[in-house]
Every structure is written in structure tokens, then in C-alpha cells.
């Protein structure tokens, strides 16, 4: 199996705060890894390191066999990695001044020098795939949260990434819209996309994840199949966390 992400002994600080502690983690091609943990545990920071939105201080990180060095202001290797890694944000971060379709076409045209015709066709196909083919010419502000997040997923997919990062993709959504976004993610997983997902949706984690990772105060304290982690957690931190989030 090919390892898409390989972290070894990674440490990350925000000033004096030690946010990631000695992280060892690999993600295989086609694997869906769901990362759970309390707010402030470092789970978002962890996946933001994978595409260089956060720098780390020590250890090693390889993404698609390319090293992303600590404190890398290294634009060249970063750009290369970012082309291969899509990201979906909690707040969608769609471009409000561009139509939905233009949001999706921007990166293929600018980064991959795709022609307008090809980028347009790709955008239409992807919008169809996430179920909002009829909204192509609207602006993001005219869409519901769930629709916006599906556009954001389509936008990331337009770059044909080898890995998708999801940073709490449903946390900013109204409850009735969470399902439609999770459905798209479930489809993606089924099609074999490699995914790292930070989420509080335990039902989704249990159903879709190949592996669940529980992070506590910047440390991976539990790791295993959903059945292992949810039904038979070994670490008392994990047990406490799960009893809190699964209680209701």
C-alpha cells in the first residue's frame, strides 16, 4: 500500500503552548481516517499541518512522498503538495465575489492551466455530482449552508486531489443540512478517496472511518477501527470523552 501521509515525531507549538506532541501517524491510500477529540485538543491543527497551513517545529512530515520540512516557508514544495491535497473548511470559505461555477473553475485554470472549456465541463460535472447542478450561476451568498459546503467539496475535487482534508465540515451547519454534506462525503469514501476527517459526527465516524484516532491535549491517545475505539476504548481519556459525546 502507498502511504499518502506519514508523520513522525511531529511537534507543534503556538508560542509556549505545545499543541501537537510527538505525533506518529500514517494514512494509506484509500483510507478514511477520522480524528476526534475535544475542542482545543489539536485535531484541526494536525490536519492543517498536512497542507502547510500550519507549520510545525520538529519531526518529519511526508505527503505523497514529498517532505514538508519543519518551519517550511518553502513555497515550491508547498505548492506541489497543495495541488495534491484538497481541503474543506468549517466556514466553507467560498469566494463570495465569484459564481459557484467560477469558484470551482478558478484553481484548475490558474494552477493547472486548464482551458475554460475543460474547467467549465469539470465544474458542471462536479456540481451535478454533489447534487446542485442547477445552482451553477448563483453566488455563494445565495445558497444554503449545506449547499455552500457541497460547492466547497466540489471546488476541492476539481483539482483531482489524492487526499482530502475535512476540518469540521458540518460544525457550522444547521442540523437539517448536516446529512446532505455527510452523504457527499460518504460517496467520496466509497469511491476510494483518501480522507482525513476532523469531526464531531460520531455516527459518521463509526460508519465511514477505516480508522478512528482520538486526540487529547495534542497527543494521540487512542487509535483503531471504529469498533475498537467506540465499543472498547482502552484509554480512560477516550472513555470519558466518548461517554460525554455519546450520552445524548
Amino acid at each position: 500500500m502507498t502511504q499518502i501521509v506519514k508523520m513522525k515525531g511531529m511537534n507543534k507549538y503556538f508560542g509556549k503552548l505545545h499543541v501537537l506532541k510527538n505525533i506518529d501517524l500514517t494514512v494509506e491510500q484509500g483510507e478514511v481516517v477520522v480524528i476526534i477529540g475535544a475542542s482545543g485538543s489539536g485535531k484541526s491543527t494536525l490536519i492543517r499541518c498536512v497542507n502547510g497551513l500550519e507549520e510545525y517545529e520538529s519531526g518529519t512530515l511526508h505527503v505523497d512522498n514529498q517532505a514538508l520540512a519543519p518551519n517550511a516557508g518553502n513555497q515550491a514544495s508547498l505548492a506541489k503538495i497543495r495541488k495534491e491535497v484538497g481541503m474543506v473548511f468549517q466556514q466553507f470559505n467560498l469566494f463570495p465575489h465569484l459564481t459557484v461555477k467560477k469558484n470551482i473553475m478558478l484553481a484548475p485554470i490558474k494552477v493547472k492551466n486548464a482551458s475554460q472549456v475543460i474547467a467549465n465541463a469539470t465544474a458542471e460535472r462536479l456540481l451535478e455530482r454533489v447534487g446542485i447542478g442547477n445552482q451553477a450561476n448563483k453566488y455563494p451568498g445565495q445558497l444554503s449552508g449545506g449547499q455552500q459546503q457541497r460547492v466547497a467539496i466540489a471546488r476541492a475535487l476539481a483539482m483531482e486531489p489524492k487526499l482530502m482534508l475535512f476540518d469540521e465540515p458540518t460544525s457550522a451547519l444547521d442540523p437539517e443540512m448536516i446529512g446532505e454534506v455527510l452523504d457527499v462525503m460518504r460517496e467520496l469514501a466509497k469511491e476510494g478517496m483518501t480522507m482525513m476527517v476532523v469531526t464531531h459526527e460520531m455516527g459518521f465516524a463509526r460508519e465511514v472511518a477505516d480508522r478512528v484516532i482520538y486526540i487529547h491535549e495534542g497527543k494521540i491517545v487512542e487509535e483503531g477501527s471504529p469498533a475498537d475505539v467506540f465499543d472498547n476504548p482502552q484509554n480512560e481519556r477516550t472513555q470519558a470523552f466518548l461517554s460525554r459525546v455519546l450520552a445524548h
Binding site: 513555497q75 484538497g86 481541503m87 467560498l94 484553481a107 494552477v111 471546488r155 476541492a156 483539482m159
Partner: peptide, 23 residues
């Protein structure tokens, strides 16, 4: 302009200057 806009641009593989001028 929200920092998330820059992050979205960079995460798509756009360079810093592309992110700035087109987003």
C-alpha cells in the same frame, strides 16, 4: 478580508500572489 479566503486559495494550490490578486 477573512483569513479563510487566503487559506482557501492557498489550499487549492494557488500561489500567494495568485491568491491575492484573484481572491
Amino acid at each position: 478580508i477573512d483569513r479563510g479566503q487566503t487559506e482557501a486559495g492557498l489550499s487549492l494550490g494557488l500561489s500567494r500572489s495568485q491568491t491575492f490578486w484573484s481572491i
